[in-house]
């Protein structure tokens, strides 16, 4: 049963940059890019990997969509190199961080413009703002059901069989399509590294570009980006402790001190 899959991805500031290099622009209420790279959000790559594995079993098509600035093209080229079938770039002209409802409305409009779909996969949250709402809001915009924190997707008896993580373990969910799912990380969906040849090829593949006007959304409202919520402050909290490195002439002496500190701390609890 071929499955028509849509994967939504987001390009973010590399979350691995060390704290000492991280700055914020309090006025713009945005992180300062500085020398940091832009990367595809890891959970979005987990989502694409999950989609690729599903397609390898079921057949079908994977369309990757991203709403972002010009640089977002890099994330989409990488998705094509990982072997997504088609990529759509919705241009975000200059707006810093749109609120999550605006993003969901833009993605929903793009998905409706594409026509039919079976399943939309998104990362559970992004490594920058960590909003964690896009999948849920998108499902509501599209009027379909949603399942969160999925780490495995297989073809089931009459739809999809999902495995998802919970606070205490996991659950299996039987779901009919169409459906929106948010993907979390697991040992089985570590994103593949694209082959060099496929990276080269990805630059020759077509990439569709749409503007907000093409989608017929309320572009003014989306650009304002604050009708759902507004970021009123962004700051770096100061909290560094002076670590006491246990000292001693021998390893045994240092471990002895370390053990005593542990006993002190746990004994006073």
């Amino acid at each position: 049963m071929p499955v028509n899959i849509i994967v939504c991805v987001k390009q973010i500031l590399d979350p691995e940059i060390p704290s000492r290099d991280f700055r914020v622009d309090a006025e713009q209420r945005e992180a300062v890019r500085g020398a940091a790279n832009l990367v595809t959000n890891i959970f979005c790559e987990n989502a694409l990997e999950t989609a690729l594995q599903l397609k390898e079993k079921s057949g079908g098509k994977i369309t990757v969509i991203s709403y972002g600035a010009d640089s977002t093209e890099d994330a989409l080229r990488k998705a094509l190199a990982m072997k997504a079938d088609a990529a759509i770039h919705i241009l975000n002209d200059g707006q810093a961080h749109p609120d999550p409802l605006s993003v969901a409305q833009v993605l929903a409009a793009a998905i409706r413009k594409l026509g039919e779909f079976d399943v939309v996969m998104l990362g559970r949250e992004s490594g920058d703002w960590g909003v964690g709402q896009t999948a849920g809001l998108l499902a509501e915009e599209l009027g379909v059901a949603a399942v969160a924190f999925v780490d495995k997707v297989e073809i089931g008896a009459d739809g999809l069989q999902l495995k998802r993580q919970t606070d205490v373990g996991y659950e299996r969910v039987a779901a009919t399509m169409p459906l929106v799912i948010s993907i979390t990380n697991d040992e089985h969906n570590v994103p593949r590294i694209p082959k060099t040849r496929d990276v080269m090829m990805s630059f020759r593949q077509p990439l569709t570009k749409w503007t907000l006007e093409d989608l017929g959304v309320n572009a003014a409202e989306v650009r304002a980006g604050n009708h759902y919520y507004a970021v009123v402050d962004l700051f770096i909290p100061v909290q560094e402790l002076n670590c006491e490195f246990v000292d001693g002439d021998t390893l045994e002496a240092r471990v002895e001190k370390f053990a005593q500190r542990i006993i002190e701390v746990t004994g006073s609890m």
């Binding site: 960590g130 919520y229 009123v232």
Partner: peptide, 20 residues
Amino acid sequence: VRVNRSVYGGKAMATIELQR
């Protein structure tokens, strides 16, 4: 309602004002 939350993987804190 304003909510403080950790963002950028814990590197920063944001105050979010809910509009609706």
